[in-house]
Structure formats: structure tokens, C-alpha cells
Nucleic acid binder design. Structure first.
Lengths: 248, 248
DNA sequence: TTTGTTAGTGTATTTTGTACGCTTAGCTTG
DNA sequence: CAAGCTAAGCGTACAAAATACACTAACAAA
């Protein structure tokens, strides 16, 4: 199943978000590339982890495989974001050169399927499985210019993340398994770009059956230590399958 | 721009929803097809309007073009739904035969980009531009078996429609430009699959700046005639760009 | 022991959701 | 032409949720 031919028409790209209790980051990989013209600045040589899919491979699987190959991340929930298929999205000469060098295939037009995902940042660097050391967390705020149309893809992913947050408590995916309320609130503030009242935030949380205190407390902080909480996935699923709201 | 080569790897398919004040319908087209083996039942020969994209064509444009070619529908807002790219999605022999007959291309694997859209049913049949008369509205409830993996695509589209309704007042797209509150409520009840209290429904509506009475009334009904309302798109956009909610 | 810093609780007010009953306008039917 | 049917449209009382705002508690560092 592995050593198949590559399908030179369809690729996948993954936008993986991480949160370090300060800001949102995106996982990028370095593009090794020797231009025929000149050597390019490092900033220009970052891209989303992505690649062509195999002729005989499901697209969703391809995304998971590529992410693993390029970053070592495994068993990550990837969600389809959107397809980017403008015929000119590869018009940049550098991009075309890179593609033909790395694939040895005649490339005419590549349609890419973008995926996005949320991970706890620790997960990446704690893993020994990192196959290549050229995967980086880059703060969303200073992404600089990426290869291909990857800036557009990231922008779209950020919007989608915000929308997603309007309906699902997806924030928990970005935090360690035990976290404080403050961490959760910081995360929400970063994503929605607005400050929240911590008292009302807590009040909302108190109603949730799927947020449970662990009994443990934070240690080594220079102030009153906070309670650590866990997200109970099973409880969440139970509570979710209830009513159904609508908007007019 | 038109008479380009077809890209035999990527197709588009459109799930177009319509509402006839009773139930939801999906727009389907007949597939003309002479099987080498036998003639198939009509039910089996319905499919979503869709086709391969041209080599040099933006995917979003392709969806609009195909929809127009197959159904006459034009200037419809199409939204990307999901990509369906399982390698076996074309394993059915009949589907393969049909494809190679209609395209005269060597087809190995086709990844399709599904789009969905909401239209007022009248719009289709009032148009003279209907190029082919083999486009039909079929009630969602009795779709029967469709070609390819189109049943899966429709199911996914229905789910997405429901989700969409949780965040945007997308219902107006399905009604004629002037409609009664009752029509709007019926629509919502069909989509969310639950009855709503009409008094509270009205109360919610009363707060919306973008729902405006026209002054006209229904005619020829065997009861008190209802006021006709309009959806004001500009007002809606204004009101939308305000706050930002989130879910925990 | 004092100081700085964040955790964590409480209350009053406003807004929104929910449940439910009655009157009104027009057509239909005897 | 009057009585009756049907859906429109309004109003009220109660519950739940969002919002605004102020203080005490626990720990580390100085």
C-alpha cells in the first residue's frame, strides 16, 4: 500500500494549531530547496506540512500520513477544511521548481485539500518519533511569507477555527490534559480576540458537566495556586446529544 | 476559456436544496446511459448534477458552470461542502462505464468536490434557460439509490445544512422573496425536525432588523391572510458584524 | 512580615427563552 | 347571511442565562 505511484494532481496540506498559553502557533516545515537562481531567505522557505497523495490512497489517510512523515505527529484528529484549486495557485516559479525537483514528476496543476487540526504543543516535542527535525511551531502573528498559497490557507483556517469555537468546545484540544481555568480563558481570549470577565467565565464553566476538577493544584507559582481541571470527553458527548438550536 | 481539456482526476458535484413549503427537495439529473449489460431502472439513473473540471478552470467556477449546463440554474451561491476522495468511490462497474462513455477519457480515479446550495424552487422552473429538461426536484425522503457515492454526499449535505442553520439565517435562501412567517417557521421545522411554538418564534423574529414587513398580504387563503415579509440582506450584514459568541 | 499577584466567590440587574390562552380576519358551508 | 372553521397575531407570567461589578484568600518573593 505504501510504495505506490504519486498522483500528481492532488495534494494535501495540514494546518496544525498549537497553543503555548500565550499565543496561537502553526506547525510549519522547512523546505529544502536549491534554487537554480539563488538561495532564498529562510522565511520564504517555510510551508505547511503537505504533499501529493498516492494514486491508491484515501485523501483523509493521505493527510494523516503526510503529517506523520513530515512532523512525527500521529493519531491527530484532522478535519477537512477546504479545497484550494485555483489554476494559478502554483504560478510562482520557485514553487514549480521545488515541486518538480522533489517529485520528479511532470506537474501541471495541483489541487490541494487543506486539513486543520488542534494539538497540545507539548505533544510534538515530547515525541522521540520526530523523523525530521525541520518542523517548527511558528506564532501566528509572525508567519511571514509562506510557500505556494499557504498564507491564504492559514488565514482561512484561522477563520474556521473561530467559527468552530462558536459551536463546539474545541478549545480543550489545545490544552494539556490537566489545565487551569485561567489557561482555558487565555486560550479563548486569544482565539476570539477579546477579553472576558473571569467571574462570568467561571460561572459558565460551573454549569458544564464535562469539566471536572482533578483535586490537584498548580505548583511553584508565585501566587495562589489554581485547581487543575480535566475535560471529560464522554460526559461531553452525552450532553451534546440533546437539544438543537437554530439562528434566525 | 471554454473549450479546454477535461481534467480526468477532479470532478464537482452540486447538492442543491429546494423547499416547496412542505418538504425539502434535492435537485437531480437523469443519467443517459446505455449499459453494455442491461437497461437499468430509472431510479438508479439519477445523480447529482456534476462533472469533471477543465484543466484550466477554478474549481469553484467549475461547480457554477456545471450546475448551469445541467440544470439551467445560474447565479446561485454555491458553498464548498467537502471533498470525497476515497479510491474506491467509483468501484461500481456501471459508474465506470458511464464515465468513460461520456468523457472518452481514460478514467482511473476521480476525486470529487461537493458543493451545496439553497434555492427557491420556483427559480428553476420559471427559467426558460433550462438547457436540458432532465433536471428534477426529488423529495429528500424518497431519494432512492443514486449513482456513485451520491447518497453519501447528500446525507453529508443535509447534516451540514442543519449545522449551518445553527449559526446563520440561511433559511431565507429557500423561500420566495416575499414570504409569510408561517412559511419560514414550516421551513425551520422541517430542517431541524421539531415543532416550534409560533408565538415564541414570532417574538424572536420581532427583534431582527433584517426581517421587514412589505405591507402586502397573502390572498386567496381560507383563513386570515398573513403579512408578507422580506429579508433585507444589507441589514443582515450590518447586524452580523457585531459581537462574537463562543461555546464552552 | 509585608507586598505583589492571581485564584476564587457573590449579588443585583437586564436580557432572553419558554409555556400557555385569547381574540381577529377571512373563507366556507348550511 | 349567519355560524363555524382555520390560521394569524398579540400578551403575560415565569425560568434561565448573560452582564456588570467588588471583595477575600493563598502562595512566593523581597
Amino acid at each position: 500500500m505504501k510504495q505506490n505511484r504519486l498522483n500528481p494532481h492532488i495534494s494535501v496540506d495540514c494546518v496544525v494549531f498549537g497553543f503555548d498559553s500565550k499565543q496561537l502557533h502553526v506547525l510549519l516545515v522547512k523546505r529544502d530547496f536549491v534554487s537554480t537562481a539563488q538561495i532564498h531567505a529562510v522565511k520564504k522557505d517555510l510551508k505547511l506540512p503537505g504533499s501529493l497523495v498516492y494514486e491508491d490512497e484515501d485523501i483523509d489517510n493521505a493527510a494523516a500520513r503526510v503529517l506523520k512523515e513530515l512532523t512525527g505527529l500521529e493519531n491527530i484528529y484532522l478535519s477537512q477544511l477546504k479545497i484550494f484549486g485555483h489554476p494559478d495557485r502554483m504560478k510562482n516559479q520557485i514553487d514549480r521548481e521545488w515541486l518538480s525537483q522533489t517529485t520528479n514528476l511532470p506537474i501541471s496543476r495541483v489541487v490541494t485539500v487543506a486539513y486543520y487540526s488542534l494539538v497540545k504543543i507539548g505533544q510534538l516535542f515530547s515525541q522521540k518519533k520526530l523523523k525530521r527535525q525541520d518542523a517548527f511551531w511558528v506564532p501566528l502573528k509572525d508567519l511571514g511569507q509562506l510557500a505556494f498559497d499557504h498564507n491564504i490557507i492559514v488565514d482561512y483556517a484561522v477563520k474556521t477555527l473561530r467559527l468552530k469555537l462558536q459551536k463546539e468546545p474545541v478549545g480543550f484540544e489545545l490544552l494539556p490534559s490537566k489545565f487551569t481555568i485561567r489557561q482555558l480563558q487565555d486560550l479563548y481570549e486569544v482565539i476570539i480576540g477579546r477579553e472576558l470577565d473571569s467571574r462570568n467565565f467561571r460561572k459558565k464553566l460551573a454549569r458544564l458537566p464535562y469539566l471536572q476538577p482533578t483535586g490537584e493544584k498548580e505548583k511553584g507559582v508565585a501566587h495562589k495556586p489554581a485547581m487543575l481541571y480535566k475535560f471529560h470527553r464522554k460526559e461531553f458527548k452525552k450532553s451534546k446529544s440533546g437539544h438543537f438550536d437554530f439562528t434566525l
